[in-house]
Nucleic acid binder design. Sequence first.
DNA 1: TTGTAATTATTGCACTTGCAACCAGACAGT
DNA 2: ACTGTCTGGTTGCAAGTGCAATAATTACAA
Lengths: 151, 151
Amino acid sequence: MAELDSAQNSLWKLFLTVHARLVEQVEQDFKQAGLPPFEWYDMLIALKQAPDQKLRLSDLAEVLLVNRTNVTRLADRLEKTGLIRREVCQFDRRGAYAVLTQAGLEMQQKMWTVYAESIAQYFSRHLTQKDEITFTRAFSAMLAALDEESV
Amino acid sequence: MAELDSAQNSLWKLFLTVHARLVEQVEQDFKQAGLPPFEWYDMLIALKQAPDQKLRLSDLAEVLLVNRTNVTRLADRLEKTGLIRREVCQFDRRGAYAVLTQAGLEMQQKMWTVYAESIAQYFSRHLTQKDEITFTRAFSAMLAALDEESV
DNA sequence: TTGTAATTATTGCACTTGCAACCAGACAGT
DNA sequence: ACTGTCTGGTTGCAAGTGCAATAATTACAA
Protein backbone atom coordinates (compact mmCIF):
# COMPACT_ATOMS: atom_id res chain seq x y z
CA MET A 1 0.00 0.00 0.00
CA ALA A 2 1.95 2.97 -1.29
CA GLU A 3 1.71 6.38 0.27
CA LEU A 4 1.09 9.56 -1.68
CA ASP A 5 2.22 12.93 -0.40
CA SER A 6 0.83 16.21 -1.57
CA ALA A 7 3.81 17.06 -3.79
CA GLN A 8 3.36 13.83 -5.66
CA ASN A 9 -0.33 14.51 -6.08
CA SER A 10 0.46 17.97 -7.46
CA LEU A 11 2.93 16.51 -9.90
CA TRP A 12 0.36 14.02 -11.15
CA LYS A 13 -2.08 16.86 -11.71
CA LEU A 14 0.61 18.83 -13.47
CA PHE A 15 1.30 15.84 -15.69
CA LEU A 16 -2.35 15.61 -16.67
CA THR A 17 -2.60 19.34 -17.25
CA VAL A 18 0.49 19.52 -19.41
CA HIS A 19 -0.67 16.61 -21.51
CA ALA A 20 -4.10 18.11 -22.03
CA ARG A 21 -2.75 21.53 -22.95
CA LEU A 22 -0.08 20.21 -25.29
CA VAL A 23 -2.42 17.89 -27.13
CA GLU A 24 -4.98 20.65 -27.42
CA GLN A 25 -2.36 22.94 -28.89
CA VAL A 26 -1.09 20.37 -31.35
CA GLU A 27 -4.60 19.64 -32.50
CA GLN A 28 -5.23 23.32 -33.07
CA ASP A 29 -2.07 23.58 -35.13
CA PHE A 30 -3.26 20.73 -37.34
CA LYS A 31 -6.67 22.25 -37.71
CA GLN A 32 -5.28 25.66 -38.47
CA ALA A 33 -3.16 24.15 -41.24
CA GLY A 34 -6.26 22.52 -42.69
CA LEU A 35 -4.98 19.04 -41.85
CA PRO A 36 -6.80 16.02 -40.44
CA PRO A 37 -6.90 15.31 -36.71
CA PHE A 38 -4.18 13.90 -34.58
CA GLU A 39 -5.03 10.18 -34.66
CA TRP A 40 -4.77 10.04 -38.43
CA TYR A 41 -1.09 10.79 -38.21
CA ASP A 42 -0.49 7.91 -35.85
CA MET A 43 -2.03 5.45 -38.24
CA LEU A 44 -0.21 6.86 -41.24
CA ILE A 45 3.20 6.78 -39.60
CA ALA A 46 2.61 3.29 -38.21
CA LEU A 47 1.89 2.02 -41.71
CA LYS A 48 4.79 3.91 -43.22
CA GLN A 49 7.22 2.23 -40.86
CA ALA A 50 5.74 -1.23 -41.32
CA PRO A 51 7.12 -3.74 -43.84
CA ASP A 52 5.34 -3.28 -47.18
CA GLN A 53 3.59 -0.28 -45.64
CA LYS A 54 0.83 -2.51 -44.35
CA LEU A 55 -0.41 -3.83 -41.02
CA ARG A 56 -3.19 -6.04 -39.75
CA LEU A 57 -5.94 -4.06 -38.09
CA SER A 58 -5.41 -5.88 -34.83
CA ASP A 59 -1.73 -4.95 -34.87
CA LEU A 60 -2.68 -1.38 -35.52
CA ALA A 61 -4.98 -1.48 -32.54
CA GLU A 62 -2.11 -2.54 -30.33
CA VAL A 63 0.32 0.04 -31.66
CA LEU A 64 -2.16 2.90 -31.57
CA LEU A 65 -3.51 1.99 -28.13
CA VAL A 66 -7.02 2.07 -29.50
CA ASN A 67 -9.54 -0.73 -29.24
CA ARG A 68 -10.50 -2.77 -32.27
CA THR A 69 -13.82 -1.07 -32.78
CA ASN A 70 -12.21 2.29 -33.19
CA VAL A 71 -9.44 1.04 -35.42
CA THR A 72 -12.14 -0.25 -37.74
CA ARG A 73 -13.77 3.16 -37.75
CA LEU A 74 -10.55 5.10 -38.08
CA ALA A 75 -9.57 2.89 -41.00
CA ASP A 76 -12.99 3.56 -42.53
CA ARG A 77 -12.34 7.28 -42.45
CA LEU A 78 -8.86 7.08 -43.90
CA GLU A 79 -10.03 4.68 -46.57
CA LYS A 80 -12.90 6.94 -47.53
CA THR A 81 -10.46 9.77 -48.18
CA GLY A 82 -8.04 7.50 -50.01
CA LEU A 83 -5.14 7.65 -47.56
CA ILE A 84 -5.17 3.90 -47.02
CA ARG A 85 -6.88 0.93 -48.60
CA ARG A 86 -7.87 -2.44 -47.23
CA GLU A 87 -6.49 -5.74 -48.47
CA VAL A 88 -7.57 -9.22 -47.52
CA CYS A 89 -5.04 -11.35 -45.71
CA GLN A 90 -4.02 -14.50 -47.58
CA PHE A 91 -2.87 -16.45 -44.57
CA ASP A 92 -5.89 -15.73 -42.43
CA ARG A 93 -8.96 -14.98 -44.44
CA ARG A 94 -10.71 -13.43 -41.45
CA GLY A 95 -8.12 -10.70 -41.37
CA ALA A 96 -7.65 -7.40 -43.15
CA TYR A 97 -4.59 -5.33 -43.84
CA ALA A 98 -4.55 -1.58 -43.90
CA VAL A 99 -2.19 -0.48 -46.67
CA LEU A 100 -0.71 2.98 -47.03
CA THR A 101 -1.46 4.61 -50.38
CA GLN A 102 0.60 7.22 -52.19
CA ALA A 103 -1.86 9.88 -51.07
CA GLY A 104 -1.48 8.58 -47.53
CA LEU A 105 2.27 8.89 -47.68
CA GLU A 106 2.03 12.44 -48.95
CA MET A 107 -0.42 13.32 -46.20
CA GLN A 108 1.92 11.88 -43.60
CA GLN A 109 4.72 14.05 -44.88
CA LYS A 110 2.59 17.15 -44.95
CA MET A 111 1.39 16.52 -41.41
CA TRP A 112 4.89 15.84 -40.20
CA THR A 113 6.16 19.28 -41.13
CA VAL A 114 3.50 20.79 -38.90
CA TYR A 115 3.79 18.19 -36.18
CA ALA A 116 7.57 18.32 -35.83
CA GLU A 117 7.47 22.05 -35.39
CA SER A 118 4.79 21.80 -32.72
CA ILE A 119 6.58 19.10 -30.74
CA ALA A 120 9.80 21.04 -30.80
CA GLN A 121 8.23 24.29 -29.80
CA TYR A 122 5.89 23.14 -27.05
CA PHE A 123 7.70 20.13 -25.68
CA SER A 124 11.31 19.47 -26.60
CA ARG A 125 12.43 23.06 -26.36
CA HIS A 126 11.96 22.94 -22.61
CA LEU A 127 14.03 19.83 -22.01
CA THR A 128 17.77 19.67 -21.51
CA GLN A 129 19.60 16.51 -22.49
CA LYS A 130 19.75 15.54 -18.84
CA ASP A 131 16.02 16.06 -18.57
CA GLU A 132 15.50 13.82 -21.55
CA ILE A 133 17.43 11.04 -19.88
CA THR A 134 15.47 11.43 -16.67
CA PHE A 135 12.15 11.46 -18.49
CA THR A 136 12.99 8.46 -20.60
CA ARG A 137 14.11 6.41 -17.64
CA ALA A 138 11.10 7.26 -15.49
CA PHE A 139 8.51 6.80 -18.23
CA SER A 140 10.05 3.51 -19.30
CA ALA A 141 9.92 2.25 -15.74
CA MET A 142 6.22 3.09 -15.54
CA LEU A 143 5.46 1.23 -18.74
CA ALA A 144 7.55 -1.76 -17.72
CA ALA A 145 5.73 -2.01 -14.41
CA LEU A 146 2.36 -1.91 -16.15
CA ASP A 147 3.40 -4.64 -18.56
CA GLU A 148 4.79 -6.90 -15.88
CA GLU A 149 1.68 -6.59 -13.83
CA SER A 150 -0.59 -7.82 -16.59
CA VAL A 151 1.46 -10.97 -17.16
CA MET B 1 12.15 27.38 -36.36
CA ALA B 2 13.12 24.71 -33.85
CA GLU B 3 14.79 21.48 -34.86
CA LEU B 4 13.64 18.07 -33.68
CA ASP B 5 15.98 15.14 -33.50
CA SER B 6 14.88 11.55 -33.37
CA ALA B 7 15.50 11.09 -29.65
CA GLN B 8 13.19 13.99 -28.93
CA ASN B 9 10.57 12.55 -31.20
CA SER B 10 10.79 9.23 -29.39
CA LEU B 11 10.44 10.93 -26.04
CA TRP B 12 7.32 12.72 -27.21
CA LYS B 13 5.83 9.41 -28.31
CA LEU B 14 6.81 7.89 -25.01
CA PHE B 15 5.10 10.74 -23.22
CA LEU B 16 1.88 10.15 -25.15
CA THR B 17 2.05 6.41 -24.61
CA VAL B 18 2.65 6.68 -20.88
CA HIS B 19 -0.21 9.10 -20.49
CA ALA B 20 -2.60 6.88 -22.41
CA ARG B 21 -1.64 3.75 -20.53
CA LEU B 22 -1.77 5.38 -17.11
CA VAL B 23 -5.12 7.03 -17.67
CA GLU B 24 -6.51 3.79 -19.05
CA GLN B 25 -5.31 1.96 -15.96
CA VAL B 26 -6.70 4.52 -13.56
CA GLU B 27 -10.05 4.40 -15.33
CA GLN B 28 -10.14 0.66 -15.03
CA ASP B 29 -9.42 0.87 -11.34
CA PHE B 30 -12.35 3.22 -10.87
CA LYS B 31 -14.63 1.01 -12.90
CA GLN B 32 -13.55 -2.09 -11.07
CA ALA B 33 -14.38 -0.41 -7.78
CA GLY B 34 -17.84 0.45 -9.10
CA LEU B 35 -17.06 4.17 -9.09
CA PRO B 36 -17.91 6.85 -11.63
CA PRO B 37 -15.47 7.83 -14.36
CA PHE B 38 -12.40 9.92 -14.07
CA GLU B 39 -13.76 13.37 -14.93
CA TRP B 40 -16.28 13.25 -12.14
CA TYR B 41 -13.49 13.28 -9.59
CA ASP B 42 -12.00 16.40 -11.08
CA MET B 43 -15.23 18.30 -10.74
CA LEU B 44 -15.86 17.06 -7.22
CA ILE B 45 -12.39 17.97 -5.95
CA ALA B 46 -12.50 21.34 -7.67
CA LEU B 47 -15.72 22.15 -5.85
CA LYS B 48 -14.47 20.78 -2.55
CA GLN B 49 -11.49 23.09 -2.63
CA ALA B 50 -13.49 26.15 -3.67
CA PRO B 51 -14.85 28.67 -1.16
CA ASP B 52 -18.33 27.59 -0.05
CA GLN B 53 -17.83 24.44 -2.09
CA LYS B 54 -19.20 26.15 -5.16
CA LEU B 55 -17.93 27.46 -8.47
CA ARG B 56 -19.33 29.14 -11.54
CA LEU B 57 -19.61 26.80 -14.47
CA SER B 58 -17.28 28.95 -16.53
CA ASP B 59 -14.66 28.78 -13.80
CA LEU B 60 -15.07 25.03 -13.71
CA ALA B 61 -14.49 24.90 -17.43
CA GLU B 62 -11.21 26.70 -17.01
CA VAL B 63 -10.02 24.57 -14.12
CA LEU B 64 -11.05 21.28 -15.69
CA LEU B 65 -9.69 22.17 -19.13
CA VAL B 66 -13.02 21.27 -20.67
CA ASN B 67 -15.06 23.52 -22.89
CA ARG B 68 -18.25 25.08 -21.59
CA THR B 69 -20.53 22.76 -23.49
CA ASN B 70 -19.12 19.73 -21.78
CA VAL B 71 -19.07 21.32 -18.35
CA THR B 72 -22.78 21.88 -18.78
CA ARG B 73 -23.24 18.20 -19.64
CA LEU B 74 -20.91 16.92 -16.94
CA ALA B 75 -22.75 19.06 -14.41
CA ASP B 76 -26.02 17.60 -15.70
CA ARG B 77 -24.80 14.10 -14.96
CA LEU B 78 -23.52 14.88 -11.50
CA GLU B 79 -26.67 16.78 -10.69
CA LYS B 80 -28.84 13.90 -11.83
CA THR B 81 -27.10 11.59 -9.38
CA GLY B 82 -27.25 14.16 -6.60
CA LEU B 83 -23.51 14.79 -6.27
CA ILE B 84 -23.88 18.49 -7.00
CA ARG B 85 -26.74 20.93 -7.37
CA ARG B 86 -27.09 24.13 -9.34
CA GLU B 87 -27.67 27.51 -7.79
CA VAL B 88 -28.41 30.79 -9.53
CA CYS B 89 -25.81 33.49 -9.18
CA GLN B 90 -27.04 36.65 -7.47
CA PHE B 91 -24.49 39.02 -8.89
CA ASP B 92 -24.78 37.88 -12.46
CA ARG B 93 -28.12 36.44 -13.28
CA ARG B 94 -26.83 34.80 -16.43
CA GLY B 95 -24.60 32.59 -14.35
CA ALA B 96 -25.01 29.33 -12.47
CA TYR B 97 -23.07 27.86 -9.61
CA ALA B 98 -22.34 24.21 -9.22
CA VAL B 99 -22.50 23.40 -5.50
CA LEU B 100 -21.07 20.30 -3.87
CA THR B 101 -23.63 18.26 -1.93
CA GLN B 102 -23.02 16.02 1.04
CA ALA B 103 -23.34 13.00 -1.25
CA GLY B 104 -20.83 14.61 -3.56
CA LEU B 105 -18.34 15.07 -0.76
CA GLU B 106 -18.69 11.46 0.27
CA MET B 107 -18.21 10.32 -3.31
CA GLN B 108 -15.08 12.42 -3.61
CA GLN B 109 -13.65 10.76 -0.53
CA LYS B 110 -14.53 7.29 -1.71
CA MET B 111 -12.96 7.95 -5.11
CA TRP B 112 -9.86 9.42 -3.50
CA THR B 113 -9.00 6.23 -1.65
CA VAL B 114 -8.90 4.41 -4.97
CA TYR B 115 -7.29 7.23 -6.91
CA ALA B 116 -4.47 7.89 -4.45
CA GLU B 117 -3.47 4.27 -4.50
CA SER B 118 -3.44 4.20 -8.30
CA ILE B 119 -1.38 7.36 -8.66
CA ALA B 120 1.16 6.10 -6.15
CA GLN B 121 1.44 2.70 -7.70
CA TYR B 122 1.59 3.57 -11.37
CA PHE B 123 3.20 7.00 -11.30
CA SER B 124 4.85 8.30 -8.14
CA ARG B 125 6.49 5.05 -7.21
CA HIS B 126 8.80 5.37 -10.18
CA LEU B 127 10.00 8.89 -9.42
CA THR B 128 12.84 9.84 -7.12
CA GLN B 129 12.76 13.20 -5.39
CA LYS B 130 15.25 14.47 -7.92
CA ASP B 131 13.02 13.24 -10.73
CA GLU B 132 10.12 15.07 -9.20
CA ILE B 133 12.06 18.33 -9.22
CA THR B 134 13.08 17.82 -12.83
CA PHE B 135 9.55 16.98 -13.92
CA THR B 136 8.03 19.89 -12.09
CA ARG B 137 10.46 22.37 -13.56
CA ALA B 138 10.12 21.13 -17.11
CA PHE B 139 6.35 20.82 -17.08
CA SER B 140 5.97 24.23 -15.51
CA ALA B 141 8.14 25.74 -18.20
CA MET B 142 5.96 24.20 -20.90
CA LEU B 143 2.81 25.59 -19.36
CA ALA B 144 4.33 29.01 -18.83
CA ALA B 145 5.39 29.17 -22.45
CA LEU B 146 1.90 28.25 -23.63
CA ASP B 147 0.35 30.90 -21.43
CA GLU B 148 2.73 33.63 -22.51
CA GLU B 149 2.14 32.90 -26.13
CA SER B 150 -1.59 33.37 -25.90
CA VAL B 151 -1.26 36.81 -24.31
C1' DT C 1 -30.60 56.47 -22.56
C1' DT C 2 -30.13 53.63 -26.18
C1' DG C 3 -28.11 50.65 -29.11
C1' DT C 4 -24.17 47.52 -29.95
C1' DA C 5 -21.03 44.29 -28.42
C1' DA C 6 -19.48 40.79 -25.19
C1' DT C 7 -20.39 37.07 -21.90
C1' DT C 8 -22.93 32.90 -19.54
C1' DA C 9 -25.05 28.89 -20.01
C1' DT C 10 -27.71 25.80 -22.77
C1' DT C 11 -29.23 23.14 -26.88
C1' DG C 12 -29.22 20.90 -31.73
C1' DC C 13 -26.40 18.51 -34.67
C1' DA C 14 -22.89 15.71 -36.52
C1' DC C 15 -19.25 12.91 -35.21
C1' DT C 16 -16.45 9.86 -32.17
C1' DT C 17 -16.12 6.44 -28.61
C1' DG C 18 -16.81 1.99 -25.93
C1' DC C 19 -19.45 -2.09 -25.04
C1' DA C 20 -21.82 -6.02 -26.36
C1' DA C 21 -23.53 -8.78 -29.93
C1' DC C 22 -22.47 -10.81 -34.17
C1' DC C 23 -20.44 -13.43 -38.24
C1' DA C 24 -17.02 -15.80 -40.61
C1' DG C 25 -12.87 -18.19 -40.49
C1' DA C 26 -9.24 -20.76 -37.79
C1' DC C 27 -7.93 -24.30 -34.50
C1' DA C 28 -7.86 -28.20 -31.34
C1' DG C 29 -9.54 -32.58 -29.71
C1' DT C 30 -12.11 -36.45 -30.67
C1' DA D 1 -14.97 -34.97 -40.75
C1' DC D 2 -17.47 -32.97 -36.45
C1' DT D 3 -17.90 -30.28 -32.60
C1' DG D 4 -16.90 -26.67 -29.57
C1' DT D 5 -13.98 -22.87 -28.68
C1' DC D 6 -11.27 -18.95 -29.94
C1' DT D 7 -9.99 -14.98 -32.77
C1' DG D 8 -10.30 -10.94 -36.25
C1' DG D 9 -13.14 -7.70 -37.83
C1' DT D 10 -17.59 -5.36 -38.21
C1' DT D 11 -22.01 -3.35 -36.64
C1' DG D 12 -25.93 -1.47 -33.46
C1' DC D 13 -26.62 1.15 -29.73
C1' DA D 14 -26.00 4.25 -25.96
C1' DA D 15 -23.19 7.78 -24.36
C1' DG D 16 -19.75 11.51 -24.72
C1' DT D 17 -17.57 15.44 -27.48
C1' DG D 18 -16.94 19.82 -30.17
C1' DC D 19 -18.94 23.38 -33.03
C1' DA D 20 -22.29 26.63 -34.18
C1' DA D 21 -26.42 28.88 -33.01
C1' DT D 22 -29.51 30.62 -29.35
C1' DA D 23 -31.49 33.19 -25.27
C1' DA D 24 -30.66 35.88 -21.42
C1' DT D 25 -28.08 39.13 -19.19
C1' DT D 26 -24.35 42.46 -18.62
C1' DA D 27 -20.93 46.04 -20.19
C1' DC D 28 -19.92 49.85 -22.52
C1' DA D 29 -19.85 53.83 -25.64
C1' DA D 30 -22.07 57.39 -28.29
